[in-house]
């Protein structure tokens, strides 16, 4: 690990300003993704601003009937919150399908959204990787791509956003609240938060340098039945090959988002509209522009079968 200096921020505005104005500075929340990458020098910050004392650790009801989740709320606390279990079960299910008990205790709501890809070449500093080193090339294109993206990817990078929580947030149409280095706040719909990176795969979200996530807001509950189906190489403690988050209403309408397939949680509203016609219609629409590799084309029929399972369960 490269050496770095460390401070604990006292206010959100100070934290954002320090990170924006200090070259090589980064926020640290739980540290479970950042430290992992710092140990192998994929991340080499020279200054860390610890945001744990900023008080963003509450879950509160909003006047609109939703929930505001502080950016520092742990994955465990969020998934176990009574209102989340009752009204947003897809979120509890998605979080509990990710990582391990130890990691979920430390992982935060903000940090989880910003976790980086698990592409093995991104982790291997001996291999070319445009995301790690822009212009370097992409080892995955001619290499092992079984885990990687099938849609929304580019010739520069075919990696995925690997997380589970954000797939549920996409189905719920959550909003990410931030504060910018100049002190102004903004609200970013989760649909716009992660970028389709094109030829700049190093930039994964629309956050500006130093922009701090303060909360994630859930709109009022959708009702319906909530599902999160994660398909992976072992039944626990593994990243998704494909995951499906869905909220299905009694009349068979609903919403669905896919994880493990794209640079962002993948939801196509036109595909949602086909839910009453069944999984194959939905997946055909949602993956119409897919560009899978020989090694990962299995993900599309897998997504269809996972969704078909959910729809069968929803019918009871």
């Amino acid at each position: 690990m490269r050496s770095f200096t460390y401070e604990r921020a006292k206010t959100a505005a100070d934290a954002a300003k320090t990170v924006a104005e200090t070259q090589g500075a980064k926020f640290i929340a739980g540290g479970t993704n950042l430290l992992d990458l710092m140990k192998i020098e994929v991340e080499t910050p020279t200054h860390l601003v610890d945001v744990q004392d900023l008080g963003f650790d509450a879950i509160e009801e909003t006047p609109e009937g939703g929930l505001r989740i502080g950016a520092l709320v742990s994955n465990t606390a969020l998934s176990a919150h009574p209102a989340v279990r009752r009204d947003y079960a897809v979120l509890t299910r998605a979080i509990q399908a990710g990582a391990s008990g130890q990691l979920r205790n430390k992982a935060t709501t903000g940090g989880n959204l910003l976790q980086r890809t698990r592409c093995a070449y991104f982790y291997d500093t001996n291999m070319p990787c445009n995301k790690r080193k822009p212009g370097d090339g992409c080892a995955a294109l001619g290499g092992f791509s079984r885990q990687l993206g099938v849609i929304g990817i580019s010739d520069a990078c075919i990696a995925t956003y690997p997380g589970d929580m954000a797939v549920a947030l996409r189905v719920l149409d959550a909003v990410v609240e931030t504060v910018k280095p100049d002190g102004t706040a903004r609200a970013i719909p989760i649909a716009d938060f992660h970028r389709l990176w094109g030829d700049t795969p190093q930039t994964e979200t629309v956050l500006e340098p130093g922009e701090l996530i303060t909360a994630v807001v859930l709109p009022e509950p959708l009702g319906g039945q909530h599902f999160y189906q994660k398909v992976r190489d072992r039944r626990s403690y593994a990243f998704a090959l494909v995951s499906v988050a869905a909220v299905i209403q009694a009349d068979g309408t609903g919403r669905v988002a896919f994880g493990g397939v794209a640079p962002k949680p993948w939801r196509v509203e036109a595909a949602d509209a086909l839910l009453q016609q069944g999984a194959s219609a939905v997946v055909a629409e949602a993956f119409a522009d897919a560009r899978p590799t020989e090694q990962n084309k299995f993900k599309i029929p897998l997504a269809e079968r996972a969704l078909a399972g959910i729809l069968a369960d929803a019918r009871g």
Binding site: T18, T22, A25, T46, H47
Partner: peptide, 26 residues
Amino acid sequence: ASAAASRASIAFAQENSGASAVEATV
């Protein structure tokens, strides 16, 4: 090489982070 680079960046971080003094050993 890495020690020299990181010392330079510590100085840089100190200059730029205003009031909050930062040290490599805490």
